[in-house]
């Protein structure tokens, strides 16, 4: 084939190119997806996450002074939440998503903390839950939208399902890392502790793989979730165990749906659908209400006793 003739044909084709349509651009310009939440909401979310971090930091300091053998489990959340308070200001999809993941984790963790017996300060758990819940509500979904940002997460299908799966994997990864670290700190290196930390690493790998749209990550996430359920049931106690079992089960269902889509070659199942905002708002409010009611009743009961 003649190179010059091919080049000439390509140049002619370029020269004959019609002007593209303007239709749709005007509407597109009217709504510009933001790479991060607006200034005011971002600072509010940051302050709320900072409050939750402060609760953990104070608790870690008290534990340290009381000679508690478990300080790491309280110091790590403070560090993660402080990092999330900074990450929300970064206009990158990864930073925005990791901040949301941390807040969901400690919203559940704070609620679970509030539900534990009175001597472990349920009011502190409620404060953590309120800090993270308020941060999630304030930040909304700005910065997570498909749009103009170069690093936007933009699969052709199952976007909402994959986003939910990433957040659930982050919740599992954080909680398992914290619980594994606590067990190692308190009991030393043992089989179950190592298994928990390995499962946490698997969750982090799932997060990285899903965010980069790797097919192996879907399978990895499903397998890790399936492994987490019996592992947690056998090694951990309430109230964190039900959270982990619940999130692993939901993740298994979500990733099973994606795998089913792969198998059938159908993308229409999860096309352009996201988790309804109302559902997430109701879930956050329900968790906050539970944490508040339990904390108030425990505090009241404690005051009556003393």
């Amino acid at each position: 084939m003649n190179y010059d003739a091919a080049l000439q044909a390509a140049r002619m084709s370029q020269a004959e190119l019609d002007r593209p349509s303007f239709t749709g651009l005007e509407a597109r310009l009217a709504w510009q997806p933001s790479a991060r939440p607006a200034d005011s909401t971002r600072w509010l979310a940051s302050a709320m996450a900072g409050l939750a971090a402060l609760v953990f930091a104070v608790d870690a300091w008290i534990s340290l002074n009381l000679g508690s053998p478990v300080v790491l489990v309280l110091g790590l959340p403070a560090a993660i939440l402080a990092a999330s308070a900074i990450a929300i200001h970064r206009p990158s999809f990864g930073a925005q998503l990791s901040a949301r993941g941390a807040w969901w984790t400690f919203l559940f963790f704070g609620t679970a903390w509030a539900l534990t017996p009175a001597e472990t300060l349920p009011a502190a758990g409620a404060l953590v839950a309120w800090g993270c819940g308020a941060a999630l509500i304030a930040a909304g979904r700005d910065g997570l939208h498909r749009g103009q940002t170069q690093a936007a997460f933009d699969p052709v299908a199952f976007r909402g399902t994959l986003l939910a799966a990433i957040v659930l994997a982050l919740i599992n990864a954080h909680l398992l890392a914290l619980l594994g670290a606590t067990r190692v700190e308190a009991l030393g290196v043992q089989g179950p502790s190592v298994a928990i930390l390995v499962a946490s690493a698997g969750c982090f790998a799932t997060v990285l793989g899903l965010a980069r749209l790797r097919a192996w990550a879907v399978l990895c996430g499903a397998l890790v979730s399936a492994a987490i359920i019996p592992l947690v049931a056998l090694t951990l106690d309430p109230p964190v165990a039900p959270i982990l079992i619940g999130s692993a089960t939901v993740q298994l269902v979500l990733l099973g749906r994606v795998l089913h889509g792969f198998y059938r070659g159908s993308r229409s199942i999860g096309q352009r659908r996201e988790v309804p905002r109302l559902l997430t708002a109701v879930l956050i409010m329900a968790l906050l209400a539970t944490a508040t009611i339990v904390a108030l009743s425990e505090t009241y009961a404690h005051a009556l006793t003393h």
Partner: peptide, 17 residues
């Protein structure tokens, strides 16, 4: 957004190529 039309008209073909 309303001014966008003139910029688009002037440069769309070059950008499209």
């Amino acid at each position: 957004p309303a001014d966008m039309r003139s910029m688009f008209d002037a440069h769309a073909v070059v950008v499209a190529r």
